[in-house]
Design a protein around this nucleic acid. Structure first.
Lengths: 353, 353
DNA sequence: CTGAAAGCGCTTACAG
DNA sequence: CTGAAAGCGCTTACAG
């Protein structure tokens, strides 16, 4: 029978070689105070030489230490169920690491109300958490929070959208620019006739706009860089009610004849509803996110393509990153871009979100 | 501080409530012989009532038990590096479960030589493994092996292709029919002109053909079911050398003008090479698998779309399934279909294989 | 069929 | 600054 590696060279063996007690070895191993530099160096050298790997099972069994993580993401709303998926990912990760002594406390905010973000932020600050995962939607408010975490040395993970240039542990989410770029690539295959494409931004909150604008930028640049003659028109719809969207689309579609409509977010289902009600079948429709409404329009062929970015995995990997960093002391990659998945009527069933 | 659940109700507590020793509790817990029906029932009842969950860390620390898994997949060849990915997945899973006392022994065979499959099979049978993962490529030879495992009650996981109707633990891989069906859906968007599509099967081994034929079937049925007028032509190329493929394509492309060429496997790069050498730019090309050669042709726009099925994850999840089944006694889903991923020049960089 | 004791490799007080 | 002992919740022989 093969000998267990960690069995061969445990704290006991290190203590023996260093002529100290296992208590002292433990102090060095866990970076605790109260060891002379000399013995510390001696022990570290032996640890190095033995290539000692602690037994995680023994460690977990003996330790009573608990870690507490907080998460701060938008609450699931009737308007969009998008945030259900990241939350599920978070809960799944929480269940997996629970036995390792980790407690997860979820906090939420209203996407349309900055005040609720600040309220939750205050609670989290008071809670003295060991790690935080957040969706930094409101830029200004987020930055204040980020600075506070930095001071307290609390590791911070961003998901879904990034605020670059800050000392967060990592960002896990889409590369927005590239996802718009990909959308343009698909549109290019879909638009052989008069090559007219309509870009539709539907969003109430100006704050969230930079999110959509990044996608639009990628979308535009594709056509510029590929010397394409595709003619792009764009409309911004700042009210998300159906009546308003209907009116805007009526106006726009009366002006010109389009091959493709590209909706820059998950609200593509609203446009699909409009298409269906108006029996529009000759315009290709492409948008974002694996939501029930969108999938239904994919099934009945009103929507042609959906671009998805594994929202559940963002939550899951976000929380796991805190765990890997804090418990396993692994190196965490600073920018973790999600795959850009292309979903159609024929493969949505197999899409593991 | 919150009380650890498993701490509150461990074997000790069960033993106390049942008026037995912890040794007897352990016997019941692990289904060992030598406990009277009466005490066994009593203990089981208490376990039930307490909703006892064993502490996996203590279990692992105390136990010396080892499990040994064997894997049997094609060896990576110069002709196709496809099997590198599943192997990487297997090795990654092996690294993750190593600390849980699991040893993994990889075996290989030559895709073009059934005898090598049988040789490895003999070795595995002799090795008395606790679980086996395999790619059941050669149907007849595989079935003999499957029967043997069934008799010895060794759980068996299939990856990449299935042999339905056998008592294996699970299948993890593509739904081939659906993946051909999806390819047809894309072709349908790409072929607006004369609507002529050429289907190309390139494969030496007749044994492997059922694999490709399933995809072709899905591809054909899409057009039938969607009342499409797309005209399909098919050629089988049974020699995989470039000269031969070149000749066949020369012949075929002289006969007719196609919008799209659909290659039913990863050998699409050979057709791409032909396209490039002959400066063919007006035919769309679509094929399978995230291989370096294919990606290069995707980058330079010779290949338009690749369909991929996460080969690495197949290996990873295959091995993990054995672990979940044997160690954690989880329920394993019998058929686990991989997502059908659509890869283009614009999203391949973010494809986490 | 059952029990009592030792031990897995760590961490945690406590004593000095 | 350091050591000796107890204990985490299981499993493993061994004894009866």
């Amino acid at each position: 029978m093969e000998k267990n590696n960690s069995g061969a060279t445990g704290v006991k063996e290190i203590a023996r070689l260093a002529n100290v007690s296992i208590g002292t070895v433990d102090r060095v191993l866990n970076n605790r105070v109260g060891v002379s530099e000399k013995t510390k160096a001696k022990i570290l050298k032996i640890i190095e030489e033995l290539n000692y790997q602690p037994n995680i099972f023994a460690r977990r069994l003996a330790s009573k230490k608990k870690l507490r993580f907080a998460t701060l993401i938008p609450q699931v709303s009737a308007e969009t169920k998008y945030w259900e998926a990241p939350l599920n990912g978070i809960l799944q990760a929480a269940a997996e690491i629970k036995d390792f002594g980790i407690e997860v406390a979820p906090f939420f905010f209203d996407q349309n109300d900055k005040a609720t973000f600040n309220e939750s932020a205050v609670k989290i600050r008071a809670g003295e958490f060991d790690g935080i995962l957040m969706a930094p939607m409101f830029e200004e408010e987020s930055i204040a929070f980020i600075e506070d975490c930095k001071e307290k040395k609390i590791p911070l993970v961003f998901i879904n959208s990034d605020i670059p240039g800050h000392s967060n542990l990592c960002y896990i989410g889409p590369n927005l620019y590239q996802s718009g770029y990909l959308a343009a690539h698909i549109v290019n295959y879909l638009s052989p006739a008069n090559k007219k494409t309509l870009v539709v931004n539907i969003s109430k909150e100006i704050d969230l706009h930079h999110h959509l604008l990044r996608k639009e930028e990628g979308f535009r640049n594709y056509f510029e860089q590929n010397g394409n003659t595709n003619k792009l028109t764009k409309i911004d719809i700042q009210e998300t009610g159906y009546a308003h969207i209907q009116q805007k689309l009526n106006e726009q579609l009366a002006k010109d004849k389009y091959d493709v409509v590209f909706v820059t977010n998950s609200r593509v289902s609203t446009v699909a509803r409009y298409f269906e009600e108006n029996k529009i079948k000759d315009i290709k429709l492409i948008g974002y996110d694996f939501l029930e409404d969108n999938i239904n329009y994919l099934k009945n062929k009103t929507i042609d393509f959906l671009i998805c970015q594994k929202p559940q995995e963002q939550g899951y990997r976000g929380l796991m990153s805190l765990y890997y960093h804090l418990v396993l002391h692994s190196n965490i990659e600073k920018e973790q871009f999600m795959p850009i998945d292309i979903i159609t009527k024929e493969n949505y069933l197999y899409y593991s979100n």
